[in-house]
């Protein structure tokens, strides 16, 4: 889940290093931010969905509701999530 994303080549080296060294028990807010940043770097839709998925899940785990909602809305726009999963959905 938190391991290397599919297209490390497309993201900056320091970000790739951060993913490569990520601990699965690391702070979810930090990891969410890392994935959110990666989502802005990648070029393909599958890669963007992948990173936004992780940014969303980890933001929810961190209790960052506003950020989680924002990521969820983007995932819905990208056809990667349904409203049934939203808090009041």
């Amino acid at each position: 889940m938190i391991g290397p994303p599919p297209a490390l080549a497309e993201i900056p080296e320091d970000m790739a290093d951060a993913f490569a060294n990520a601990d699965r028990n690391a702070d979810p807010a930090t990891l969410s931010a890392l994935h959110a940043a990666a989502a802005e770097c990648v070029e393909t839709l599958p890669e963007r969905r992948f990173h936004l998925t992780h940014a969303w899940v980890l933001a929810m785990e961190a209790g960052a509701s506003d950020k989680a909602s924002m990521f969820a809305e983007r995932l819905i726009e990208l056809g990667a999530l349904t409203k049934a999963y939203l808090k009041d959905g």
Binding site: R48, F50, W56, G79, A80, L81, A84, Y85
Partner: peptide, 8 residues
């Protein structure tokens, strides 16, 4: 759950 990056 619906494949990579697909969450429903």
């Amino acid at each position: 759950v619906g494949g990579p990056g697909i969450n429903a």
